[in-house]
């Protein structure tokens, strides 16, 4: 009896590890929708005709895509509070590790999602907007009822792809002390002196989560069944 109890206590770490597997899901579930919304704003800014809107968006996208996510996380977590002290002499720019993780993941992925969304919006046939306008719709109605729903179907597969990538990138926020899956695995591994096994276990969990996400994405895709523009050979009927 005693030995069984000891064995079970010994095995608690497994439950701890499994419980920690919820963090990649939490982080992704919070950051990805934010990334898509922010990405849509960036895409809209970039498509705008005035440079006051398009240039900041271009600048943001290029800077974010050109620097590593880990560096961005460090900058927001360590450098931003310093800037806050310098400029406002307050903790106004100091962010806790978990919100900082969500913010950085969202901000980073927004740059990529904005490019996907921009391509998706451009992929909707120009004739769709014209048909909507010719029915008396305003530009805004044409965008909301006609262009955006079609672009959305086009961008679902690449966005799901990025969602799986983000799930794995959530491990980077362990660097600022968020006790997510990787951090938990490391902590257990150090305590039990079985670090290699714990990294292995964490890998398997990440993979299972990714597969889960992937199949969820495939299911959504199937439900929405991506439909592009008209299936006419492009250019054939142009003047």
């Amino acid at each position: 009896m005693e030995s069984i109890r000891e064995y079970l206590v010994e095995q608690i770490f497994i439950w701890k590890l499994l419980a920690a597997a919820r963090y990649p899901l939490y982080l992704t579930a919070l950051a990805m929708p934010l990334a898509v919304v922010f990405g849509l704003v960036l895409a809209a800014m970039r498509r705008a005709k005035t440079r006051f809107l398009s240039w900041p968006a271009v600048f943001y996208v290029e800077v974010v895509r050109g620097t590593p996510l880990l560096v961005q996380i460090f900058l927001v977590y360590f450098a931003l509070p310093k800037l806050g002290h310098l400029l406002f002499n307050s903790d106004i720019l100091t962010i806790g590790p978990f919100p900082c993780g969500v913010l950085c993941l969202a901000g980073n992925y927004a740059a990529y999602e904005s490019e996907i969304l921009r391509a998706g919006l451009d992929a909707v046939d120009k004739g769709q907007r014209e048909a909507a306008l010719s029915l008396g719709m305003s530009e805004r109605q044409a965008f909301g009822y006609v262009i955006l729903p079609q672009a959305f179907r086009i961008v679902i597969p690449p966005i799901v792809n990025d969602m799986v990538a983000m799930l794995k990138d959530t491990c980077l926020v362990s660097a600022i002390g968020v006790r997510e899956l990787l951090k938990t695995a490391e902590n257990i591994g150090r305590e039990k002196a079985n670090l290699s096994e714990m990294y292995m276990a964490a890998s398997i969990l990440y993979m299972l989560l990714s597969l889960g996400c992937y199949f969820l994405g495939k299911w959504v895709e199937k439900k929405l069944k991506a439909k592009g523009g008209q299936e006419l050979p492009a250019g054939k009927f142009e003047h």
Partner: peptide, 13 residues
């Protein structure tokens, strides 16, 4: 003013 286009432009969604 109604308009009919060469490439129909029905809303596929």
């Amino acid at each position: 003013v109604g308009m009919v286009f060469q490439r129909f432009n029905l809303f596929p969604h």
